[in-house]
Write a protein that binds this DNA or RNA. Structure first.
Lengths: 229, 229
DNA sequence: GCAAAAGTGTTAGGTGTACACCCATGA
DNA sequence: TCATGGGTGTACACCTAACACTTTTGC
């Protein structure tokens, strides 16, 4: 490549990850302690600087793997934050991505190693820079997307129960849903597969497992079908 | 500021603008000819490099003003495009914003000066780099947002008629709407103010002008009201 | 046998959608 | 007077939301 743009300025670019997990009816955010100056040891999202050999998504995957030990995570761009003084060190433009992970796959050892912790989403304290804003923007996106796309399944294990799924939606929308209406709607969509076995960890009777069938869902979409709540 | 991050790499950052206008029942995109190498003279979105003294939105406003002569435009971030080889010159990470402008305010002289032109949205040819992708992403966002937020008014003059407004929504969603149902719904929302005068440019009878009352709309929102289509 | 969570149908009210005719005016 | 686009009301189907009791089983 010829140096076409030499007269232009260059900038530091980072990626920040809003890593969400779900368990026991609550959404959790992975928070870490910043490892370097400025603002060393303050609460921060997982992040890292972009390197010249990688795409944005690759940088996010790298950071994600480093902090969680998980690969192949569902992620989406939240937006880019570029205010001149957002970083108190030097000017850094940051691209935020959120990731939804299944907490059962999560490596607790890595968590300790990075001084990272899962914090309840509605009890998050002050994070550095504009990281709280990034979290808020993520929640807004999650709410609007989860209603029209089956995003939530990324936060659950492969096999999950309907009460679990319902409590996930209740956590996302901070509301309570009618059990009967919820089941009617979600089962009417025809892309959940009932499994023969039950989860007996939360009740004596046990709740049947279901599985999200992506093929069926995609097939329905191609026929002009629309998911909605 | 101390040089905290010296060991990190820096990148070129640009902003690209998807500028949309609406007139005569159709959406138009402002397209320009690239003024420098590489790919000089090819069709491109309006764009420019970020400078160290400005926020992202300021860079967009600068580019927008330069090409259209308009200030105070409604704009939103579309996303950030950072693939390693997206720019054939050198690596450039680009933040895309869309802007909705009222074509009546538009300066045709500037258009000619910049070899820019309004192209019908569904007749856009090949643009440089990933600019077609940016346009597609914009349309997707516009469709999902216009249904739940009164965005469309940014594309119309202050005073507009209901047939105009309806044809705007028809253009955004590539569909036809029932006149009676549309009027019932939109007037039921109570933030359109009927004006005493008519637009007689499209019919002999003339259509009453309306005005979008942002105060009323905000007030309704605060009461938990939700706009929807 | 009882506590605790899982599972199951019906109804009323509201919302979306389809549909056809009269009105005002300039030419 | 006629052609053109602006404006109006109703009926039906569908979807949503509210609601209470039975089942299973470990203790």
């Amino acid at each position: 490549m010829a140096p076409f743009y030499i007269e232009q300025e260059k900038f530091f670019l980072s990626v920040d990850c809003i890593i969400l997990g779900f368990t026991k009816g609550k959404l959790y955010l992975l928070i870490s302690k910043r490892r370097f100056e400025p603002l060393k040891d303050r609460d921060t999202l997982m992040g890292g600087f972009l390197r010249s050999g990688e795409n944005l998504e690759e940088a996010v995957s790298r950071v994600l793997y480093e902090y969680t030990g998980i690969k192949d995570v569902y992620m989406e761009q939240v937006g880019t934050y570029g205010k001149i003084n957002r970083d108190v060190g030097e000017r850094v433009i940051s691209v935020a991505y959120y990731a939804l992970i299944d907490l059962e796959l999560f490596d607790d050892e890595l968590c300790k190693k990075h001084h990272a912790r899962w914090e309840e989403l509605d009890k998050i304290g002050e994070l550095i820079f504009d990281h709280n804003q990034m979290v808020d923007d993520t929640i807004a996106i999650l709410r609007s997307k989860a209603a029209i796309q089956p995003l939530g399944f990324n936060l659950l294990p492969e096999k999950f129960t309907l009460p679990q799924l319902q409590s996930l939606y209740e956590a996302i929308y901070q509301t309570t849903l009618d059990k009967r209406n919820f089941r009617k709607k979600i089962l009417g969509m025809d892309f959940l597969e009932k499994q023969p076995d039950k989860d007996k960890s939360t009740s004596k009777r046990g709740a049947f497992y279901y599985r999200f069938n992506k093929e069926k869902y995609d097939q329905l979409c191609r026929k002009g079908y629309y998911f909605s709540l």
